[in-house]
Each structure stands twice: as structure tokens, then as C-alpha cells.
């Protein structure tokens, strides 16, 4: 199963750089980042090349963090490929709570990160349709 890290942050300057600094010092490569904001605070979601370690170092640095299950699926980097995945999930009556992605190889491959209720089930569905599900 794929993992992402959610970090609670106050809405203040310097919060992101504190996180990236810690990751850098620990030689952790940041793959993707997205921010949900709610006025005075927000939640930063990140994916790295070593999520368990990233979770631990952030926790040690007194961050409010949580490790969550997500579906990480590889898709071709071309028009319509996200749509295909979304369509499959729609047909299976699955709600996407949150989604973001990043390109791994320009024009060739991208990675899609999906937050869903039943991560395992979605991974199965996508695997059965020939998608490569990545385990971070």
C-alpha cells in the first residue's frame, strides 16, 4: 500500500521551509506536495522516497504528523489518462477524497496519488485493469 504524510502547520511564513530543511538534512527526496488550507492552519501532504523515515524525523522534530494509506498508481503521461482511472473508479462507485500527482518521466510516465476510503480494494481494481500500483 502507498503512504502519504500529513503535517499540521500553522498558516505562517517559514513553515514549509522548515519541513523541506528537515527532509533535506535527512537525505529524503520529496516527490510531491499539496496543501489544504483552513484559515489559520493547514495540512501539508507530502510523498517522499522514504515515507516511514520522513514520518519519523518530522515527528522527532515535534511536528503533528500522520501517516496515511493512499493509492499510488502509475499512468502514462498523456492526455486522458487520469480520466480513464477516474472513469474506472466511477463505475465501481468509488469516491475520490483527494488526488494529486507528479510526472516521473516527461511525456512517458506520471504517478497519481488517490485518497480513497478502501485503499486495498481500489488497488485491486486498478491492478486488475492492468495498472501498475506502486508501494512506497
Amino acid at each position: 500500500m502507498g503512504k502519504q504524510i500529513s503535517i499540521f502547520v500553522e498558516n505562517k511564513p517559514g513553515k514549509i521551509s522548515k519541513i523541506t530543511e528537515i527532509l533535506g538534512k535527512n537525505k529524503i527526496n520529496l516527490k510531491a506536495m499539496t496543501i489544504a488550507d483552513s484559515g489559520s492552519f493547514g495540512i501539508i501532504k507530502i510523498m517522499t522516497d522514504n515515507n516511514q523515515k520522513a514520518y519519523e524525523v518530522l515527528k522527532d522534530n515535534n511536528f503533528l504528523v500522520s501517516l496515511q494509506d493512499v493509492v499510488v498508481v502509475e499512468i502514462p503521461d498523456k492526455v486522458g489518462s487520469f480520466h480513464k482511472v477516474a472513469k474506472i473508479l466511477e463505475r465501481n462507485d468509488i469516491n475520490i477524497e483527494d488526488a494529486y500527482g507528479f510526472i516521473t518521466q516527461e511525456g512517458v510516465k506520471a504517478v497519481l496519488i488517490l485518497k480513497v476510503k478502501d485503499t486495498k480494494k481500489v488497488e485491486e481494481i486498478l491492478k486488475n485493469r492492468g495498472y501498475k500500483v506502486i508501494q512506497f
Binding site: S6, F8, A36, S38, I43, L64, V65, S66, Q68
Partner: peptide, 15 residues
Amino acid sequence: EIKKDFFKGDINELK
């Protein structure tokens, strides 16, 4: 301050 065990990364829960 929010308790560490409570934080599940869900912004709606916090709201």
C-alpha cells in the same frame, strides 16, 4: 494544542 494521537491528517475533522 492538538493531541498527537488525535491527528489523523484530516482537515475536515480539525475544522
